[in-house]
Computed example of a mutant assay.
Amino acid sequence: MTREPDIETAATDLRRQLVRRLEKDGRLRSPEWRAAVAAVPRHMFVPRFYRESDAPGVTTWEPVAPEIVGQKEWLRLVYGDQTWVTQFDGQDIDWTDPKPISNATPSSSSTLPSLVVRMLEDLDVCEGMNVLEIGTGTGYSTALLCHRLGNESVTSIETDENVARGAREALTMSGYTPHLLVGDGRDGDLDGAPYDRLIATCGFRNIPSAWLEQLVPGGVILTTLRGWMRSLGLVKLIVTGDSASGWFSEDDPSFMIARQQDAPQSLGMVPGPDDGTKRKATYGPDVLTGTGSAFMAQLAAPNARFFSMPVDGGPVSTFLLDSVTDSFVVLSPTVSGWQVRQGGPRRLWDAVESAVATWEEYGSPSTGAFGVTVSRDEQAVWLGKPNGPHWPLPS
């Protein structure tokens, strides 16, 4: 009878395979990061996790651990290019009796390695640099940074005390000892400043002013900007004194939003049937989910969220509600298209339609055509060039 190889031997082989896949896909480009991925044992950072079930119906996650699926399958999944969920709704999982989980929102995870290494490559680090990571999570990306730069050059901040504890244990067991802090990542780390690089592994609605103050001139901020409806995308900013500017990437990696900037539980007030003013809509609700147009809708309505439901037994209407200003939109189908009813301090659908029309006028470009400028007084996303069409980020 053949024995299964021991965990370390099998994991080393799987890491080599992962390196080859990431190289082939163009994610791993430098020998230093290749060495880090080949060395850091991801299985130490995700000893147990949840994966999404492919069963129809309500989204359900299934537990994965060596004792549940077997050592070989667990390791295969760990070293696959997938994101694995490690926490839901900010609550620790009871691994003494793991069960499938439904009707829950992931709140911590181990991000897929291809995105992790792509961001680390884009961070453009070199020996001697001081790096601040926002969002320690499981600690896997922190370990990669430590392997590349050394423990003393890496500081990582995690907002969840229990998540931070697990990351610290995994890092220590793997031989890495960075500076680990528990707190609000928006505050950065004044004691360890100045930093040459800042990388955030959670999404933010804007760029915290502390980040600008704690990076050296010429320093790099690499983070995902996102709203309450969707991710805007990965942006790389170069700091110049009290301001920073840069461009979005072509693709749209999506991270969980920072807990301190999560949307309020209440969507806002649902309008009555006679509230607001009506007109024929130029665009229907598909712009809220379409490629490119949804990016514009998020910029135009940064405090809004949407949902659809039948109204008074009639056809399904789409509601766009702004919980900050109590502005609202109701989109209802008609024989000839869509009717919009809107009210409140902001004419939300006017703003969305204007943004989408501008995007179409410029040729419906990808996110790579957009940039961001950040200063103490203003933060804005712009199209094409800083003095082109622009939309403020929420304060």
Rank of each mutant, 00 (worst) to 15 (best):
G188A: 07
L383A: 04
T289Y: 14
C146S: 14
L234A: 07
R279S: 15
R376L: 13
L288S: 11
W84H: 15
D54H: 12
P392H: 10
P194N: 03
T201G: 04
W74Q: 06
S30E: 08
L288D: 10
V270P: 04
G272F: 09
G368W: 07
L171D: 12
V374F: 05
P113N: 00
D94N: 15
N151M: 08
D275N: 06
F295A: 00
T277F: 06
Q82T: 14
S30C: 04
I93M: 05
E250P: 00
T291I: 11
D94F: 02
C126N: 12
V19I: 05
Y50V: 01
L14Q: 06
T60L: 02
I134M: 06
P98Q: 06
T172R: 15
Q17L: 14
D262F: 00
A38T: 05
L215H: 03
Y176D: 06
L320P: 01
P106R: 04
A294E: 10
P56I: 09
M256P: 02
Y195C: 05
T177F: 14
G276C: 00
L77G: 06
S156I: 13
G368P: 03
S109W: 09
W33C: 04
G192P: 11
V335S: 15
T159P: 00
V372L: 10
M129Y: 08
F204I: 15
M173N: 14
R346V: 15
T86F: 01
P100S: 12
S114R: 09
L75H: 03
L145A: 07
P178N: 09
H147C: 10
Q265R: 12
L22C: 01
V381I: 10
K236C: 03
G128Y: 12
A244Y: 12
D124S: 13
L132D: 12
S308H: 04
P5M: 08
